[in-house]
Nucleic acid binder design. Structure first.
Length: 558
RNA sequence: GGCGAGGUAGCUCAGUCGGUUAGAGCACUGGCUUCAUAAGCCAGGGGUCGCGGGUUCAAGUCCCGCCCUCGCUACCA
């Protein structure tokens, strides 16, 4: 049986989730997981928050909160957003709360060191006595020694574009408190990426089949891969293992080093809770495991180069990613979603107002799969009204209400003599039928969304060809056969919809008279003339009602 | 400045290895239908594929230059 670990980018616990994140990494993962599960694959879905790093400590202090509660707040926001959007994981944890995380992160560090993939170096860095911390380049400002403009940041001068070495500032200031920092020597450990690349992993990365947009990114990256510091001078994070000695005092692992390890430590946490503490190995070190990382394009270097290098470097038999379906960026009004810049809105409230499934569907059908793409409320409303209310929802009501009125609200009978004609008409002559799951497996979510609608159009064409309202008077038995065929089709439609629109799929499923969960049904694929029917004539149908209410654009009202 | 992505119909986007008249959805126009959520079906109009060169029998697709938009620029993630 196919076994797949699906991860969604660990969210940096320093702000709310917005549609950019959701369309980029979380919703596609959820649709993928739901699809695979209905297909009978064994799937583990993991996500959580990335809780460490300087940015968080500074923001927390500004907000007057202690780090754990600050991080917990954003972790909670993430969970609430997932709930609102029906995005489900087996575990949503956090790097600062997962009990297994520190130890496993240190184990990675130790093994990489033992295997010769870490380099120890001493560097000079600015230290702020007032704030009692080494300052990241970004937190130093001063007068640019090239163009003389004030307010140059420690990494780059905004006026002349020069790359700044903050140690060369004549008047360095701490950006946090404004005092003058002093120069101090500090020791750090670097991940020897060039060596890791040359010891096999480079070849693996080069030969691996990546998504097109990922491929382009990686090629350049590989040629010029630097050593990367994986430790920091601060207290909020995972402390270093004892074997580094005194030099490790007051230092923690760099967030980017420990964050992806979270995927594994969260799995350990989950398996311990389930009472099978060793089961995580079957996943992460199992030969047949497929590892799929859903991320945004900004995460490509880490998931395609750094983390695989780490997994390889510890030499513990970890699986390497089989696919990294990175999405591009999702934009709002031409710019990126940004909560600090005000270019965003409250996701939970948005979903309450416009509906979970309509939102999920629209995000999927405009997902930035191949290039950056654009979100707009007007289009969401448009799409909901035409594709969901008009094509899919109206198909259900026009069929089921007609049956309720004229055929006693039960599945009408199919005359054996009509079977061949009905099957030929709907399966061959009313338009192409596609399997949404086939697109999902290729990470083509936009096409999958289109396919669900296109399949409903096939049935709408069938209704028009049969014209049951007229046929009922001329040949009632044949009208019954046609409606029986349409009931069968709606049963497929509900299952096709399930991964994308779980709530509405379930509602349709119940309208068809079923009591169980549609998501527990096996994936239907595409109908086959000989075997696609499964209904019993006379079975009671549920109450037909509008699946997707039409939405009104507040901007278009006068 | 450097790096990355993009500029294709009114809008949002597809276009695999360069190969017939450049596609889809929405919007728009016309016709059919009346079962249904003023829904459905059919047909149609609409593009010098950012600009200028080049390679080729053939370029939206490859090469060079330019213009514009967006993102990143590493010890922030």
């Amino acid at each position: 049986m196919a076994r797949t670990i699906v991860t969604s980018a660990l969210l940096y616990a320093n702000g709310p989730l917005h549609f950019g994140h959701i369309a980029g990494a979380y919703l596609p993962a959820d649709v993928y997981v739901r699809t695979l599960r209905m297909c009978g694959d064994e799937v583990l879905a993991v996500s959580g928050s990335d809780d460490h790093g300087v940015a968080i400590t500074i923001s927390a202090e500004k907000a007057g909160e202690d780090y754990p509660s600050y991080v917990a707040r954003w972790n909670g926001n993430m969970r609430a957003t997932f709930d609102a959007l029906d995005i489900r994981y087996d575990i949503v944890s956090g790097t600062s709360t997962c009990p297994e995380h520190p130890e496993l992160s240190r184990e990675f560090f130790s093994k990489l060191m033992a295997n010769g993939y870490l380099v120890e170096r001493q560097t000079k860095q600015l230290f702020c006595v007032h704030d009692d911390m080494f300052l990241a380049d970004r937190y130093v400002e001063g007068t640019c020694y090239k163009c003389g403009s004030e307010g140059a940041r420690g990494d780059e001068c905004p006026s002349c574009g020069t790359w700044i070495d903050p140690l060369q500032f004549e008047d360095p200031r701490c950006k946090i408190c404004g005092s003058t920092p002093e120069e101090r020597t500090t020791t750090h450990w670097y991940l020897d990426l060039p060596k890791l690349r040359d010891d096999k992993i480079g070849g693996w990365i080069r030969d691996h089949e990546w998504k097109t947009n990922v491929e382009k990114f990686i090629e350049n990256l590989l040629d010029d891969v630097p050593e990367r510091a994986i430790t920091r001078d601060m207290s909020w994070g995972v402390s270093l293992p004892p074997e580094v000695g005194d030099a490790g005092e007051g230092k923690v692992l760099y967030v980017w080093f420990d964050a992806p390890i979270g995927y594994i430590s969260f799995t350990k946490e989950l398996m311990r809770e389930r009472g099978t503490p060793d089961a995580w190995k079957d996943w992460w070190q199992g030969e047949d495991t497929q590892l799929v990382h859903f991320i945004g394009k900004d995460n490509i270097p880490f998931h395609c180069l750094v983390f695989p290098s780490m997994l390889h470097g510890v030499q513990d038999g970890y699986v390497l990613p089989s696919a990294v379906p990175a999405n591009e960026f999702y934009n709002l009004k031409g710019g990126k979603f940004s909560t600090s810049g005000g270019n965003a809105f409250d996701v939970v409230k948005f979903v309450e107002e416009w509906g979970v499934d309509a939102t999920r569907f629209y995000l999927c059908s405009t997902m930035p799969e191949t290039a950056d793409s654009e979100f707009s409320l007007e289009q969401l409303i448009q799409t909901t009204n035409t594709a969901l209310a008009g094509t899919i929802g109206n198909l259900a009501t026009r069929v089921l209400k007609f049956i309720a009125k004229n055929f006693d609200a039960v599945v009408p009978e199919l005359q054996e003599s009509h079977r061949e004609e009905m099957d030929r008409l709907i399966l061959e002559e009313c338009g192409p039928i596609e399997d949404p799951a086939a697109h999902v497996r290729e990470f083509r979510f936009r096409r999958a969304a289109e396919a669900v609608v296109a399949n409903a159009t096939v049935a709408n064409v069938f209704v028009d060809r049969m014209a049951p309202w007229a046929l009922r008077k001329e040949d009632p038995a044949k009208a019954a056969s046609a409606l029986n065929t349409l009931c069968e089709w709606l049963n497929w439609q509900a299952r096709w919809m399930a991964p994308l629109m779980p709530t509405k799929a379930q509602q349709l499923w119940e309208m068809l008279g079923h009591s169980g969960q549609v998501s527990d049904e096996p994936w239907p694929g595409t109908p086959d003339a000989g075997s696609w029917r499964s209904l019993t004539a006379g079975a009671a149908l549920g109450n037909p009602e509008a699946l997707f209410p039409r939405l009104t654009d507040p901007a278009s009202q006068t």
